[in-house]
């Protein structure tokens, strides 16, 4: 279960301040460069509140830059909110950027281990899930080759397999369906269907694939420029999203 209250996230824009060189910072301190540059903020998310009840599958829709991924990053603890509060009951599993914990020099098998721990699984859980992950990824003898020798398709298959075998009460799923060939995509969708339907998991589902949203979600919300503009039944949310895209 997730309860988010008045959630806001601001990013600094421009390079002075953070991501700058010390020299430019010194320059602005000495009055050489415009000093207000570092203070410009971009509000990626503004005053968002919602709850995700146990067993609920909720879609999050919105155009690129509407704040969907920022929301996911906040919930996954990757970056802290600027304002507001999130209360989470249960363990969070994030299928956000699959394969992010992979190291090119490690073999597929070693990467399963490493990224499993990175995703918050215990060693025993990883050991238990490994045969299933290997069967799901289905990459044959390449399993014991360094990941840098993989085709991008193989890489994504293994990455998805690891993420999709995480056992968590709450799942955050962000645009992970565009993986591999048609056959594997169908397999992924099947896996997601199983994940969302079984074990009473709560799921927050971000996608631009309206078919998948319609198939998986109980309800949905639409974000626009960091604000929630719609929350309700899935069909209504899709209509709202299409209208805002000018697709009506």
């Amino acid at each position: 279960m997730i309860t988010a209250t008045n959630l806001s996230k601001a990013f600094r824009t421009g390079t002075i301040g953070y991501g700058a060189t010390l020299y430019s910072r010194l320059g602005s301190l000495l009055g050489g460069a415009p000093a207000d540059d570092g203070k410009r903020l971009h509000w990626a998310l503004k005053d968002l509140s919602f709850t995700l009840a146990p067993g609920e599958v909720v879609g999050v829709l919105g155009h690129n830059g509407s704040g969907k991924s920022t929301l996911m990053k906040l919930l996954a603890r990757i970056t802290p909110p600027t304002e507001g509060r999130i209360e989470i009951q249960g363990r969070i599993g994030a299928l956000i950027e699959i394969g992010m914990g992979f190291h090119p020099e490690l073999t597929g098998r070693e990467n399963i281990q490493f990224s499993g721990v990175l995703l918050g699984m215990s060693k025993a859980e990883i050991a238990a899930a490994t045969p299933e992950i290997i069967a799901f990824a289905d990459i044959g003898a390449y399993l014991d080759e360094p990941v840098k020798r993989y085709s991008s398709g193989m890489f994504m298959r293994l990455a998805f397999a690891v993420s999709a075998h995480m056992d968590a009460e709450i799942l955050l799923i962000d645009e992970v369906l565009a993986v591999g060939d048609a056959g594997f995509q169908a397999k992924c969708l099947e896996r997601l269907r199983w994940l969302t339907a079984s074990g009473g998991r709560s799921v927050l589902f971000v996608s631009h694939d309206m078919g998948a949203v319609e198939a998986l979600c109980h309800r949905a919300m639409v974000l626009d420029h960091g604000q929630k503009v719609f929350e309700g039944d899935t069909a209504g949310a899709i209509a709202e999203y299409r209208a805002r895209q000018g697709l009506a």
């Binding site: 906040l74 909110p81 304002e83 209360e87 989470i88 009951q89 249960g90 969070i92």
Partner: peptide, 8 residues
Amino acid sequence: RPTTVLLP
């Protein structure tokens, strides 16, 4: 992780 509270 029974309850986690995320704050600024």
